Structure formats: C-alpha cells, structure tokens
Simulated assay, not measured.
Amino acid sequence: MKRVLFILGVLDDDDIDWLISTGKRQEIPQNTVLIHEGKPIDAIYFLLDGTLTVQVAALKDQIIAHLSSGEVVGEMSFVDTRLPSATVKAITPSLVLAIPKDRLIEKLEQDVWFAARFYRALAILLSTRLRGTVQKIHDAAHWRPLDLSDETFNLDMAANMSLAAIRFDWLLRRLRDGAIET
C-alpha cells in the first residue's frame, strides 16, 4: 500500500491540483542524498518513482528503511520543525514531487479547509507509521518498513483508498507528461 494514499484520500481534487501546480518535479540521480540528517530541508517530497534508503548516523549509517513509489519524505521535519533525524538517499534514479516548505506554510495559513485536510492526512500517515514501527519492534530485532494491508486501516479510511489510488495515478500521469516544469 502506498503511504501517499493516506494523504491523497483525505485531500480533495483542488488540493491535489494545488500540490501539482505548486510542486516541482525533480529527478534525483542514483546515490544522491535528498535529505541530510541534521540539516534543514526546504520541501516535503512525494516519491513518485525509484527507491530511497533511510539511514541513521547513531546506528553507524545502517539502512533502517527502503522507500518506494508512493512514500512521503520530510513530513516529520515539516510538522515538528526539527532538523531531519535521518539521511535519505536515492539508491536508484528517482523522481519526486517537491512541495516548497514556504509555499506550503503560506497555503496552510491562508486556506483553513486545506489545512484541516492536510494535517488530518499527515496525522493518519504518521499514526499508521508509528503503529507499524511499534509492531515491528515486537516482531523483530530491527525495524523494517510496514507493509500496509487492508487490515491496517478501518472502513472509514478504506473508503478513501480507491479514490486516493486514482488521484495518485492522475498525479503521476500529469507529472510524467510534463504538465509542470522541472
């Protein structure tokens, strides 16, 4: 299950259109660091294609997660305004939609309904990720990314998932067809 579906399932079509028109399509070459642990970031990223790794210096740069299409990156630092707690690196050529932090903050301050939907979507995403992490701690000696299944979310969330999947496909088609500048 793509984690971006948690966000796209809560946002409406106008919100998605704003993300696409505001965001910047960025191609990330293999072995390029997208986010440096402990250094400020200026965007939140939607991983559209490729594979990223997450590494933590405290664990001697051990890879703690692999991220694939549909993941959201940089959301924790956006929400709590702290520096990133991990390094995120492209291990394959990757494509992201980068939403500039300053533009997102401006939109959240000006559009209360967008803000409500956006923060609710992030809360669902982060809650699901935390529940998965807690479960993995119980199940294994080290953390692995959660494989979300239908049992992971309730019926209210499930109702949004098919619409979210359609929106994700729509977003990918628009960005791959060059609907916005790179």
Rank of each mutant, 00 (worst) to 15 (best):
A179P: 00
S77T: 11
A115Y: 08
I20N: 05
S69G: 12
D150N: 11
A115W: 07
S149P: 01
L175M: 06
D42I: 06
L8N: 00
L11I: 07
L125I: 09
L126S: 08
I35S: 04
A140L: 06
Q55D: 12
A140T: 10
L8D: 00
N160A: 11
I20Q: 04
V112E: 14
A179D: 09
A98W: 05
D177F: 01
L155H: 14
Q30W: 07
D17N: 15
D147C: 03
V88F: 07
G74F: 03
F118V: 07
A65V: 03
L34N: 08
D139F: 05
K24L: 13
I35L: 04
R129H: 09
Q110A: 15
K2T: 02
S85H: 13
K39P: 01
S69N: 09
P93K: 10
R103C: 10
M157V: 15
K89I: 12
V10R: 03
Q55H: 07
R173S: 04
M161D: 00
L48V: 08
D169L: 10
Y119T: 12
V73L: 03
R173W: 01
A164M: 03
T32W: 10
P145N: 06
D17I: 13
N31H: 14
D14R: 14
E75A: 13
L59P: 02
L95G: 02
L19R: 06
L126N: 06
Y45M: 04
Y119H: 13
G178I: 02
P145S: 06
G23Y: 04
V54K: 00
D13I: 10
S149I: 08
F46S: 00
D177W: 03
I16F: 02
A140I: 04
V79C: 10
T87K: 10
T32E: 14
P40I: 02
A159H: 10
L5R: 04
R120I: 09
I91D: 04
W113L: 13
A116L: 12
R174L: 06
I124A: 08
E109C: 11
V54Q: 01
L47E: 01
L59H: 06
V54L: 08
S94N: 09
R131N: 12
M1T: 02
D102C: 07
L11M: 05
I44N: 01
L155V: 12
T51R: 10
I105P: 05
L97D: 04
